[in-house]
């Protein structure tokens, strides 16, 4: 199995624990991740200028197609942006015209229908690799761990871009991936709610309150960790949990793990290779509990 890996902007600079653990897990499972020189997906400036955003995505789609590989995105927003751009460019002639005007004038290139398969890293593990194979490769079952999953928004929505994959309102693939490690996936009330990360730059207070709501529920439920697959969600629940602990009377202590970090422990990968030093909320208690 071989894929072109799409890292985006946030992961390789600010959440390298996600990248490090994903690469370690892929290597352990025999999945080759190739870097083909992708740039920003366009998502961050979509609110400002959609034509520019789609132009960026279009150039990345071309790179994926040139490499003749399926594209695996670690960031669900990047993945969604690439899929959305391919969808819009496939059906809206006005957008194709605007994008190609921009690309031919400023980049010396043109979009000609390049449309490689784009999927999220977790979907690749779930659909292409398979949870049965993961179960067979687990060396260190995480039996006894109570895990809450946070599937996030762009992993499964909009469903129009993810036809045939999971459920847009009640996704379960991440839970099955967690259970493949031997851990228990615990249900809770606001599981499918947004972390608030995308409005951090607009109203920080609202974004933080959104993240806090989930941390409050999870504290009541009592879990060993929250497992997620998006760098913005990671920043909101991990970094901002630590920040909120300095601002609020109520202290939270919920370790936040990227799914490849959890899977990495179960596969018997050295924790040193899973980037736990980057996590803001300490995971030492959890590592102790599972005996690594």
């Amino acid at each position: 199995m071989k894929y072109a890996v799409f890292l985006g902007c946030t992961i390789p600079s600010r959440q390298i624990n996600y990248e490090q653990s994903s690469r370690a897990v892929a290597k352990s499972l025999g999945i080759e991740l190739v870097d083909v020189g992708f740039g920003c997906c366009g998502f961050p400036i979509e609110p400002i200028d959609q034509v520019k955003a789609i132009s960026m995505a279009a150039m990345n789609l071309k790179k994926g197609e040139e490499a003749r590989l399926d594209v695996v995105a670690l960031c669900p927003a990047c993945g969604e942006m690439l899929m959305k751009a391919a969808d819009i460019l496939g059906k809206d002639e006005t957008t194709v015209k605007n994008v190609n005007n921009l690309l031919s004038k400023h980049v010396g290139s043109e979009y000609r229908g390049e449309n490689p398969r784009v999927i999220h890293f977790a979907r690749m593990l779930y659909e292409d690799f398979g949870t049965d194979k993961i179960k067979n490769l687990v060396k260190h079952p995480l039996t006894g761990l109570k895990i809450a999953t946070h599937p996030g928004c762009h992993y499964v929505r909009p469903s129009s871009l993810n036809e045939g994959f999971d459920d847009p309102e009640f996704p379960h693939s991440l839970d099955e991936l967690v259970e493949a490690t031997g851990a228990e996936s615990v249900d809770y009330i606001n599981k499918n709610y947004c972390c608030g990360g995308s409005i951090l730059a607009v109203r920080e207070g609202v974004a933080k309150a959104m993240a806090r709501k989930k941390l409050e529920v999870l504290t009541e439920v009592g879990v060993d960790a929250l497992v997620l697959i998006c760098p913005f969600c990671g920043i909101m629940y991990d970094r901002y949990q630590k920040l909120m602990n300095t601002e609020l009377e109520r202290k939270f202590n919920i370790p936040i793990l990227y799914y490849p970090q959890l899977l990495g422990i179960a596969l018997g990968i050295d924790p040193e290779e899973l980037g736990f030093d980057v996590n803001s909320i300490s995971v030492s208690g959890l590592l102790e509990k599972v005996g690594v």
Partner: peptide, 27 residues
């Protein structure tokens, strides 16, 4: 960040993808 990535054995990434700079700069 480049040092941190190297310490962790992560591959080099294109630091400044020029096609993105050109698109952002357009107009």
């Amino acid at each position: 960040i480049e040092d941190e990535r190297a310490d962790k054995g992560l591959p080099e990434v294109v630091a400044k993808p020029d096609f993105i700079m050109k698109i952002a700069e357009a107009g």
